[in-house]
Design a protein around this nucleic acid. Structure first.
Length: 791
DNA sequence: TGAGCGCGGGTTTTT
DNA sequence: CCCGCGCTCA
């Protein structure tokens, strides 16, 4: 037991350094396909097995629920093999079936069950189920453990009710989506409504600040949290309550974070608080029996739109680490050997990413053969592109007996692009599955039933109540609902309290009073039994007793039939959840439903071609990858083209796509593309110019280098009035300047800002500048950005 | 109170 | 081109 665990022998020296790391901070810079998941998994196993760390003292943060599940499974497998060898002297597979099952279940209980592995959101939700009742925000709002988690559409519904209902404003000028986005941004920057308002010079900004304040109050009235709160509230709670922080700090002695390049400030704050018990990171020295182990790759940072900030990773060495340079440091390991892709694919990836200025110096070193050339294909339009891709897939599948449908992936920039591919795949009867798009839990019928369940757990959840009060129809119309809502407002009660008060219902309910009372009684019955029934049983009862299923049956359409099947799926999901989780109450089931993504529910077992966005493809690999739609304005997306930092993110996205491929990579683009019905000419992506021709079979296009994309134009009129835009005259070469942190600069678009970071040097230099208000931090290339120095 | 129709807007990526 | 919302009419 105290010998080095044999599984360490499968590792290369760098991986081994990472895996054997015990106490203190460590940054693992892990290139694509370098075995970082393996390093994480093995390290957890090594901590438990070799260093005798209690699994309950380990916290591992993953980027998706699926990754969390996989990590737990891998750890279980690893231990099962070990234990089989230790106790029986033979591999697990050599044991009788029954003993295998017993052994695995024992391993699960001993080593895996008490580990905390999950996404930031899932872990925070779990912490809050313990401690949220001890939290009070600065306006005195409180929540209970039964809180609902509002997804993006719930949050927008709330925003909309504030804009159109409370403030009586036009929901077109104040689109719920963009208002919600602004609020989310403010939250992610840690601004209260008051602080946010100070930054807002104009009417619109002040209105948004007003909505923001009301939004917080309404969330609290609903006993609900949005995705941002899930992260923010633990941070604030830890800051205001030493003993709670102390508990979790003590509990999680070993903190591991995957995809560290995609953490945002709040997530960083959370990690720092947990690791240092609130002390500053730089001076923290008490690493006895404690570690912070983060893994990431700046080149794969693709979530800045969600406030992710890869400078957090770049600062790790100064922050937690010893800050020494790469040769001497003890707090940095680089994994550069790539085990996934052929050399040609890696060379292509390396060549592309070298065009970025903000990086940690790193290459992908091949360990496999040269492989096939990359194939570049130009199609006439998006239909021809799809036909080409599907044709290739069919041909390859026929020719190579070892290639299955599941070995192919089609990766695109935007979800909308899937359509053409789906049509052609259907035409040729090729099985496929689209990852992303509409989540299972976002289907109307599923959301409806979940709303019932949320009301059972958390009766203050008025957003859910309003969703189901007349679904299925029970004769409760808009006027009635308005009267009830007004009554609730005047009495300063949750809507639910009005509904269960028979006197009030008689006063305000009018002709619908009867329906209302029955509805309220039904909910109360479920509430009474909720604690004694498993989630699946409650799903079943609600589906039937609410009349929802009956309503679908009486509709008798194919669509209603589909919906009914989806509800059966929902019950199955609850059953499966009960199987997989110890504490599978209704509360935790609802939590997992709110935080599930579409990718989580996909089974890898089915043999299908995968279609997904580049974002969804992160962390996956496929023998054959089709990277499609490489056109200016589409990829890189037109919204990124004016901002050098955003363009670099698009390039990283392309890099992620390329590095998904193991054996063969296809890159396609079209001459023209249908956009909302009209056919628009397309220009090849500038990324195509950055790829080395010698690796490519077929001619890389040369156009596009200096062209702006055709801006997506809604009408002929707008495209006619669009001035033939020429590029701004090249700026005269500015004298080289040694930028300093703290310097003030004037940007033509963003105004005055202050430099917060300087990256790289000489030609490859870039700077991070913080601008006031909603602009926030921008990373700029001083050679390109319209910048002037200010004294 | 509910059904049907017409208009207008949307496509960047997601926990 | 497709979907959702809001308006109008029965």
């Amino acid at each position: 037991m105290s010998t080095v665990a044999p599984f360490l022998s499968h590792l290369n020296p760098s991986q081994r350094r990472a895996v054997e790391h015990f106490c203190g901070p460590l940054l693992v810079v892990a290139g694509a396909g370098s075995g970082k998941t393996r390093a994480l998994t093995y390290r957890v196993a090594n901590l438990i097995r070799y260093h005798h760390v209690d699994p309950a003292n380990i916290l591992a943060v993953t980027f998706t629920n699926k990754a969390a599940k996989e990590m737990k499974e891998r750890i279980e497998r690893l231990f099962s093999q070990q234990v089989a060898e230790d106790e029986y002297g033979k591999p697990l597979s050599a044991l009788p079936e029954r003993e295998q099952v017993q052994l695995r279940s024992r391993v699960y209980k001993t080593y895996v069950k008490d580990l905390w592995v999950g996404t930031f959101h899932a872990l925070c939700a779990r912490i809050l189920r313990f401690d949220i009742d001890k939290y009070k925000d600065d306006r005195g709002n409180t929540w209970t453990k039964q809180f609902s988690i509002f997804d993006e559409s719930d949050a927008q519904t709330l925003v909309k009710s504030i804009v159109t209902g409370d403030l009586n404003l036009d929901s077109k000028t104040f689109e719920p989506r963009s208002v919600r986005y602004a609020i989310s941004n403010a939250k992610n920057r840690g601004l209260s409504p008051e602080e946010f308002q100070q930054d807002q010079p104009n009417y619109r900004g002040r209105v948004i600040a007003d909505v923001y304040g009301r939004y917080i109050t309404k969330l609290a009235e609903n006993n609900a949290l949005d995705f941002d709160d899930l992260l923010l509230i633990p941070v604030r709670l830890f800051q205001q309550n030493e003993s709670i922080l102390g508990y979790w700090h003590h509990r999680f002695r070993h903190v591991l974070v995957d995809e560290y390049q995609d953490t945002n400030r709040t997530q960083y704050d959370l990690i720092r608080l947990l690791v240092t018990n609130g002390e500053p990171a730089r001076t923290y020295g008490n690493w006895n029996q404690r570690s912070a182990f983060v893994v990431g790759d700046v080149d794969q940072s693709i979530y800045s739109f969600r406030a992710a900030d890869f400078t957090i990773l770049m600062e790790f060495q100064h922050d937690f680490g010893d800050g020494l340079d790469d040769k001497e440091t003890q707090t940095l390991v680089k994994l550069e050997e790539n085990y996934r892709s052929t050399e040609n694919i890696l060379q292509m990836a390396n060549a592309l990413i070298q065009n970025n200025s903000q990086r940690i110096d790193k290459v992908l070193r091949p360990t496999r053969g040269t492989g096939e050339s990359i194939i570049c294909h130009r199609a006439d339009d998006e239909i021809a592109e799809a036909q080409y891709v599907v044709g290739q897939i069919r041909a390859m599948e026929q020719e190579h007996p070892d290639l299955n449908w599941r070995d192919f992936a089609i990766l695109y920039r935007t979800n909308a692009q899937s359509r053409a591919f789906e049509e052609v795949l259907v035409q040729w009867a090729v099985p496929y599955s689209v990852v992303g798009g509409l989540r299972f839990y976002d289907r109307k019928e599923v959301k409806d039933i979940l709303a019932y369940l949320r009301m059972v757990v958390n009766p203050c959840d008025t957003v859910s109540l309003l969703r189901i009060i007349n679904t299925p129809r029970r004769g409760i119309g808009k006027t009635t609902i308005d009267r009830l809502v007004n009554a609730a407002q005047e009495l300063n009660l949750p809507l639910w309290e009005v509904l269960v008060d028979e006197g009030l219902v008689k006063t305000y309910g009018g002709r619908s009073a009867r329906g209302l009372t029955t509805f309220a009684q039904q909910l109360q019955q479920w509430q009474a039994v909720a604690d004694d029934l498993p989630a699946s049983a409650l799903v079943q009862r609600v589906m039937e007793e609410s009349g929802y299923v009956q309503d679908l049956i009486s509709q008798g359409t194919d669509e209603a039939d589909d919906r009914r099947k989806n509800l059966d799926e929902l019950r199955n999901a609850a059953l499966q959840f009960e199987d997989e989780n110890e504490d599978a109450g209704l509360l935790t089931f609802l939590g997992s439903a709110s935080l599930a993504s579409d990718a989580d529910s996909k089974d890898d077992l089915s043999n299908r071609v995968s279609l997904m966005t580049l974002h969804s493809s992160k962390g996956l690999e496929f023998p054959v990858v089709f990277l499609v739609g490489l056109e200016q304005g589409l990829f890189p997306n037109y919204r990124s083209m004016d901002d050098p930092a955003a363009l670099e993110e698009e390039r990283r996205l392309c890099y992620v796509g390329i590095t998904r491929a193991q054996e063969q990579l296809f890159i396609t683009h079209a001459n023209a593309r249908r956009l909302w019905g009209s056919r628009e000419p397309a220009v090849p992506s500038l990324f195509l110019n950055e790829l080395p021709q010698e690796l490519v079979l077929g001619q890389l296009p040369h156009a596009g280098r200096r062209q702006r994309p055709p801006a997506p134009s809604r009408s002929a009129a707008s495209s006619a009035t669009r001035s033939p835009k020429t590029r701004p005259p090249a700026r005269p070469a500015a004298p080289p300047h040694n930028w300093q942190v703290g310097e003030k600069v004037l940007h033509r678009a963003f105004g005055v800002g202050q430099i917060t970071h300087v990256f790289g040097s000489g030609d490859k230099q870039s700077i991070a500048v913080r601008f006031p208000g909603s602009i926030g931090q921008k990373v700029l290339d001083p050679k390109l950005a319209p910048l002037d120095r200010l004294p």
